[in-house]
Design a protein around this nucleic acid. Structure first.
Length: 551
RNA sequence: UGGGGGAUCGUCUAGCGGUAGGACGCCAGCCUUUGGAGCUGGCUACCUAGGUUCGAUUCCUAGUCCCCCAGCCA
């Protein structure tokens, strides 16, 4: 939006963007917004391109496995960087040369203050800082020291290279920001080739310039960094002058979205891993059954603005449901079984009934489901004393079994001790078989079922998103994980599914009739399918989020 | 108390001088051989106060509130 006018003329009308993750964690739904924005913008220009650049300037947190994961996730989302994959670490030599030039120009100096001293020299938000006593070293001395830094002659923390800007600037970022620090640590790509590493504020603008980025899009918290970004690009006298533009990052209400917290959940084994379906990571959402199309549609819808926003989880889930509604195969399953016996159906008979795979998509075809004398239906579909608005089974009531017959409930058998209903005895009307030309009697409700003899045992993971209550209210020394939604922690259950699900391919999307959307998990085995519930029950999570958790 | 941003239905988001639109959500009704599906209708908003103007959400002024910044993280 902001860029539409930039495209008219500036930068030769070209659009080159970049998605610049640091490979220190896995991508989450918040990154998806940035990915969709950057790649989407580039796609609007026929000649546009979006680079994938890894901002790997901090060797202590980064790893190749994250690089692979990020590549995988961006591709999964449906975006293509063609051959434009870059690493800030590939620019270390160039960056170093730019730095020497800055020193030569008298715009950078080696400071030998400790981190603590530097902090106190920096001043506060309201008081200006003071110049470091090392600020006026000669160009020669700076050059010598900087080369010694690179040569590994100093231990960590003894010196840094700083830009010489203005210690009294009201913008903290301009109070002689650190450009290089010493870190004797192995980098996952450059190994031990370097022991000094460039800081973000220095490496990022130059990386953009080197790559010929036209629009460098970042989040709001970098607005204060823009003057520094421009300073670096200008003083380094690079050919390209990219422009930094900020937008608000995505927040989803109650969702755990910080890399730090996600890492903590994984490390403390509160979740199964980065791909735990309860997490808002792309890997987790994918395992849970979210589709890239739905995530993209969501990102397009939430828009791009400069105001802080918190999106409701329901909006995300709406886009998932809408997409899944079109593409997922319908299938019958029973989560909480209640046995029914059809008294007038032959004990040795089995019928194969035709079932539609997806009413939204006729090309999905049909399959057959076995029907027999003993079936299971959902416990919730029977009530002994039905209230006014309840039209499903009750003593004396009639209901249709999906794809099968109309049945009538004769009586309920109860456990003599607990008084709970253990099974129902029914009769069926042979004239009412689904699809039969005649006898199209209407009944108030249709329910789903599985044949007891044919049903397959499956595991259903009724995941809800991992949510918290308002973490700003967590006392400082209190464990924030105590505020996690308890409903997302105990969620495994058995279920019975129709035989066609005996073998499923992981990632396959289903809608269990009247129960919701499920996705086949990689843990699925032939004979023991495993399904993750994709979208949580409509208000279950909302209620859970309101609950203050254990205290 | 310094600097930088931002304020439109409950939530996201359009409009940027001339009836404030859309989506989610919610409510009501209809439909249905699954629906949490579909259809119809309804609901609620321009931070405040001044000013400019025939007319201001839009322009100006002054306030209010919210977010970000004092890493050798990004």
């Amino acid at each position: 939006i902001v860029l539409a006018d930039r495209a008219t003329g500036k930068h030769g009308g070209r659009v080159v963007t970049r998605f610049p993750p640091e490979p220190n964690g896995h991508l989450h739904i918040g990154h998806a917004k940035s990915i969709c924005l950057n790649f989407g913008l580039a796609q609007e220009d026929p000649e546009g391109i979006c680079h994938l650049r890894f901002d790997d300037t901090n060797p202590t947190t980064e790893d190749l496995s994250y690089v692979r994961s990020i590549e995988d996730d961006v591709r999964w989302l449906g975006f293509d960087w063609r051959d434009k994959m870059f690493f800030a670490s590939d620019y270390f030599e160039q960056l170093y040369n730019f730095a020497e030039r800055l020193i030569t120009k008298g715009l950078a100096y080696v400071d030998s203050l400790t981190a603590d001293e530097m902090r106190s020299y920096r001043g506060t938000l309201t008081e200006p800082g003071e110049n470091s006593p090392y600020r006026d070293r000669s160009v020669e001395e700076n050059l010598t020291l900087f080369r010694q830094m690179r040569a590994g002659e100093f231990p960590d923390g003894t010196h840094v290279l700083r830009a010489k800007i203005d210690m009294a600037s009201p913008n903290m970022n301009l109070r002689d920001p650190v450009l290089y620090r010493i870190r004797h640590a192995a980098h996952y790509r450059t190994g031990s080739a370097w022991c000094i590493y460039p800081a973000y504020d220095y490496a990022h603008p130059l990386s953009d310039a080197i790559e010929g980025i036209t629009h460098s899009i970042c989040t709001l918290e970098f607005e204060d960094h823009r003057p520094l970004y421009d300073w670096v690009v200008a003083e380094a006298e690079t050919r390209h002058r990219p422009q930094q533009i900020e937008f608000a990052r995505l927040n989803i209400e109650h969702a755990v979205m910080s890399k730090r917290k996600l890492l903590e959940l994984v490390e403390r084994k509160l979740v199964a891993g980065w791909d735990d379906p309860r997490l808002p990571t792309l890997k987790g959402l994918r395992r849970r059954g979210y589709t890239p199309e739905a995530i993209r549609a969501f990102c397009d819808h939430i828009g791009v603005a400069k105001r802080d926003a918190v999106v409701e989880m329901q909006l995300l889930e709406y886009f998932i449901r809408e997409d899944l509604n079109k593409r997922s195969q319908r299938v019958m399953a029973v989560l909480k079984p209640l046995k029914i016996v059809i008294e007038n159906y032959p004990a040795d008979k089995t019928e194969e009934l035709d079932a539609i795979n997806n009413p939204e998509d006729p090309s999905a075809g049909t399959r057959t489901v076995p029907f027999s004398k003993t079936l299971y239906i959902e416990q919730d579909d029977f009530l002994e004393e039905p209230p006014k608005e309840f039209f499903r089974l009750a003593p004396g009531r009639e209901v249709r079994l999906r794809y099968a017959y109309i049945i009538k409930c004769l009586r309920a058998v109860k456990d003599p001790v607990s008084g709970r209903v253990t099974e129902l005895h029914c009769t069926y009307d042979p004239e009412t078989r689904s699809g039969a030309a005649q006898a199209k009697r209407k009944v108030k409700a249709t329910i789903h079922w599985v044949s007891a003899a044919h049903a397959v045992n499956a595991e259903a993971r009724l995941y809800n998103p991992l949510l918290t209550t308002d973490l700003t209210k967590v006392p400082p020394d209190h464990d924030w994980t105590a505020y996690l939604n308890p409903q997302s922690l105990e969620v495994l259950t058995n279920c019975l599914v129709e035989p066609s699900l005996n073998q499923v391919v992981p990632g396959a999307k289903f809608q269990f009739e009247r129960l919701g959307y499920f996705c086949a998990d990689p843990d699925s085995m032939p004979g023991k399918p495993v399904f993750n519930r994709t979208v949580s029950l409509k208000d279950a999570w909302a209620k859970a989020a309101k609950r203050p958790g254990s205290t």
